[in-house]
Simulated assay, not measured.
Amino acid sequence: MNEPLPDTLILDRLDTPIGTAIVVTDEAGVLRAFNWTDYEERMNAWISRRYPGAAVRAGRSPIRAALEAYFAGEVKALERLAWAAIGTSFQRQVWTALCQIPTGETWSYARLAQAVGRPTAVRAVGLANGSNPVALVVPCHRVIGSNGTLTGYGGGLPRKRWLLAHEGASFRDQMAA
Rank of each mutant, 00 (worst) to 15 (best):
Ala33Trp: 04
Ala33Thr: 00
Ala33Pro: 00
Phe34Pro: 01
Phe34Glu: 00
Phe34Cys: 04
Phe34Val: 11
Phe34Lys: 02
Phe34Thr: 04
Phe34Leu: 13
Phe34Ile: 07
Asn35Asp: 14
Asn35Val: 04
Trp36His: 09
Trp36Tyr: 11
Trp36Glu: 07
Thr37Leu: 05
Thr37Ala: 06
Thr37Tyr: 03
Asp38Gln: 13
Asp38Arg: 09
Tyr39Leu: 15
Tyr39Met: 15
Tyr39Asn: 12
Tyr39Thr: 14
Tyr39Phe: 15
Glu40Leu: 13
Glu40Val: 11
Glu40Thr: 09
Glu40Arg: 14
Glu40Ile: 10
Glu41Ile: 11
Arg42Tyr: 15
Arg42His: 12
Arg42Cys: 11
Arg42Glu: 13
Met43Lys: 10
Met43Arg: 12
Met43Thr: 14
Met43Glu: 14
Met43Leu: 13
Met43Trp: 10
Asn44Ile: 13
Asn44Gly: 14
Asn44Val: 13
Ala45His: 14
Ala45Pro: 01
Ala45Trp: 12
Trp46Met: 11
Trp46Phe: 11
Trp46Lys: 09
Ile47Arg: 01
Ile47Gly: 01
Ile47Thr: 03
Ser48Lys: 15
Ser48Ala: 13
Arg49Trp: 04
Arg49Asn: 09
Arg49Gly: 07
Arg49Ala: 11
Arg49Gln: 11
Arg50Cys: 10
Arg50Leu: 08
Arg50Pro: 03
Arg50Phe: 01
Arg50Lys: 12
Tyr51Leu: 02
Tyr51Gly: 01
Tyr51Ile: 04
Pro52Gln: 00
Pro52Leu: 01
Gly53Ile: 03
Gly53Met: 07
Gly53Asp: 05
Ala54Pro: 02
Ala54Tyr: 09
Ala54Leu: 08
Ala54His: 06
Ala55Ile: 08
Ala55Ser: 09
Ala55Met: 08
Ala55Lys: 08
Ala55Val: 11
Val56Asp: 02
Val56Tyr: 00
Val56Arg: 07
Arg57Thr: 07
Arg57Ala: 00
Ala58Met: 02
Ala58Tyr: 01
Ala58Pro: 00
Gly59Met: 02
Gly59His: 03
Gly59Arg: 02
Arg60Ser: 10
Arg60Pro: 04
Arg60Ile: 15
Arg60Val: 15
Ser61Ala: 13
Ser61Cys: 07
Ser61Gln: 05
Ser61Trp: 03
Ser61Phe: 07
Ser61Ile: 06
Pro62Cys: 07
Pro62Thr: 08
Pro62Asn: 09
Ile63Glu: 06
Ile63Trp: 05
Ile63Ala: 11
Ile63His: 02
Ile63Gly: 03
Arg64Ile: 07
Arg64Asn: 10
Ala65Met: 12
Ala65Gln: 10
Ala65Gly: 13
Ala65Asn: 10
Ala66Met: 12
Leu67Ala: 06
Glu68Phe: 06
Glu68Lys: 07
Glu68Ser: 12
Glu68Trp: 06
Ala69His: 07
Ala69Pro: 08
Ala69Gly: 09
Tyr70Cys: 03
Tyr70Asp: 01
Tyr70Gln: 08
Tyr70Lys: 01
Tyr70Arg: 05
Phe71Tyr: 15
Phe71Asp: 05
Ala72Thr: 09
Ala72Cys: 06
Gly73Cys: 11
Gly73Val: 08
Glu74Thr: 07
Glu74Ala: 10
Glu74Gly: 04
Val75Pro: 04
Val75Trp: 01
Val75Arg: 12
Lys76Phe: 03
Lys76Gly: 15
